[in-house]
Amino acid sequence: MAELNYREAVAHGIAQEMRRDPLLVMLGEDIADAGGVFKTTVGLLDEFGPERVRDTPISEQAIIGAAAGAAMTGIPTIAEIMFSDFIAVCFDMIANEVAKARYMTGGQISVPMVIRTANGGGSRFGAQHSQSVENWCMMIPGLKVVAPSTPVDVIGLMAASIRDPDPVVFFEHKSLFATKGEIPDGEIVDTLGTAAVVRQGTDCTIVALALMVPRALEAADRLAEDGISAEVIDVRTLVPLDTETLLGSVAKTGRLYTVEENPRLCGWGAEITSIVAEEVFWDLDGPIVRITTPHVPLPSAEALEDLAIPSADRVYDTVVKSMG
């Protein structure tokens, strides 16, 4: 058992898999010599060498394209897109090429690759370096979408993503990099498509992802002081989606709250909300409530960014108000 932070867990997870599979390679901007702009790849160049950990130009299309071409010809790849906002400059590669290759070739082409990217707000970087864009990827058939909230989940879900024969977009949250967690010894491999009930409860279900998970947990602690027993679910992977866990919880508690960092329209919580409304409507004891970033670009100033992204206070207040 060792303690690692979320940032260290990224390199730990990648290293575990690169030791296992000598063909696995990674590429991205500033990932090798510099160890990544967020220092998530520190030590990988030293251990695995420049043939397996390669720096690239600032060319996101070339990065994803190279990772895809290698993956479809026998070399599994990990491509880093420095900030998830930059997915927009290579979205053709991700949405049109990587995601659709298998289907449109009648199953001939496999693209076993992981696209890692730093996602989310809290760093005061403004509208083009702070977004939560997991929903951009969730809407594309052919992509798996993962967003861990703890160091141990980073390692286990990283391993599962790398071992998955389909393309996975892996969102690492910038504001979680410093958070610490206990890491068991030995190989850690998790399972995609499994949500985690991170706090048991009976009165309501709060569903959260990535940075929103610790905030939901904090809100649940305070709700408990008020006599409201909240169950908190960490979705962990949006595609595949563990609807069994979600539906089971809502059927038990009768109340659903989603806590989403993405701006409101077409956020991942809307999909979960619709599934719940279609399938366990008669188990609901009140309206479903979505707690999201408002539908605005993210501002830079501390005061405004904190106002925009759901906080533990906002989750607490919203639940109290609607259940009161």
């Binding site: 394209g65 895809a68 071409g69 290698a70 010809t73 053709d92 590669m93 049109n96 090429e97 290759a101």
Partner: peptide, 25 residues
Amino acid sequence: MMGSYAIVGAHLCIANGAAWSAQIR
């Protein structure tokens, strides 16, 4: 024949990847 790609330009980047793969292997 690793594919015909209908978004202009994409496959040049993907061909790089196949070439990289040959280099690695």
